[in-house]
Simulated assay, not measured.
Amino acid sequence: MSATAEGTCQTCHKPGNKLKCTNCSATYYCDTACQKSDWPLHKTRCKFLQNHPSGATSTTNGSADPQPQTIPCVIITASPTSYAKTFLPSTHPIFNTRALPITTKIGYPLVMARMAEHLPRGPATDNQHATWLNIDPGSGFAPEHWQGGIGDVVVASADGTPLYLDTLGAITDYVSSILDEFGEGKGAPRHMYSRAALDTEYLEA
Score class of each variant (00 low, 15 high):
104 T>E: 15
62 G>T: 13
64 A>D: 06
56 A>D: 01
114 R>Y: 00
14 K>A: 15
133 L>D: 01
57 T>P: 00
22 T>S: 15
184 E>P: 00
137 P>K: 05
122 G>N: 02
21 C>Y: 03
164 Y>R: 13
6 E>W: 10
165 L>T: 12
9 C>E: 03
37 S>E: 11
14 K>L: 14
179 L>M: 15
154 V>S: 03
165 L>K: 14
13 H>T: 11
186 K>E: 05
142 A>F: 12
42 H>E: 01
30 C>N: 07
69 Q>P: 00
173 D>V: 02
103 T>W: 06
135 I>E: 03
141 F>T: 13
17 N>E: 08
35 Q>A: 11
110 L>H: 09
136 D>K: 12
180 D>H: 09
187 G>Q: 07
21 C>N: 03
109 P>G: 07
115 M>D: 01
119 L>T: 00
10 Q>S: 07
128 Q>E: 12
172 T>W: 01
19 L>W: 01
92 H>M: 11
39 W>A: 11
23 N>P: 00
187 G>C: 07
160 G>W: 06
185 G>K: 10
131 T>S: 14
199 D>Y: 05
43 K>E: 05
110 L>Y: 09
142 A>N: 10
146 W>R: 14
183 G>Q: 08
5 A>W: 01
78 A>N: 06
153 V>Y: 04
155 V>W: 02
205 A>D: 00
129 H>V: 12
173 D>I: 01
161 T>R: 15
17 N>V: 07
158 A>H: 11
86 T>S: 13
71 I>K: 04
20 K>R: 15
64 A>I: 04
126 D>R: 14
102 I>C: 08
161 T>I: 04
159 D>R: 07
15 P>R: 13
200 T>F: 12
201 E>R: 15
185 G>M: 10
123 P>L: 10
32 T>E: 15
167 T>N: 07
86 T>Q: 01
131 T>N: 12
204 E>C: 05
103 T>M: 06
50 Q>S: 09
13 H>W: 07
8 T>C: 05
59 T>S: 14
145 H>C: 03
141 F>L: 14
14 K>F: 04
184 E>M: 10
189 P>T: 02
165 L>I: 15
148 G>R: 02
129 H>F: 11
87 F>D: 09
163 L>V: 08
32 T>Y: 09
61 N>M: 11
110 L>N: 08
1 M>A: 13
106 I>N: 13
181 E>V: 12
69 Q>E: 08
58 S>R: 15
163 L>Q: 08
77 T>W: 04
71 I>E: 05
99 A>Y: 02
172 T>G: 00
6 E>H: 13
6 E>I: 15
30 C>F: 09
90 S>E: 13
142 A>H: 10
183 G>Y: 09
104 T>P: 00
65 D>G: 05
46 C>F: 02
63 S>C: 09
149 G>I: 04
34 C>L: 06
7 G>K: 08
143 P>A: 05
72 P>L: 08
21 C>W: 03
9 C>A: 07
47 K>Q: 11
158 A>K: 13
147 Q>G: 14
167 T>Y: 02
57 T>D: 05
135 I>G: 04
120 P>S: 02
117 E>A: 14
64 A>Q: 14
158 A>N: 05
99 A>T: 12
195 R>P: 01
17 N>A: 06
164 Y>A: 03
191 H>N: 10
106 I>Y: 09
46 C>L: 07
55 G>R: 11
158 A>S: 15
149 G>F: 04
111 V>D: 02
70 T>C: 02
36 K>T: 14
159 D>H: 06
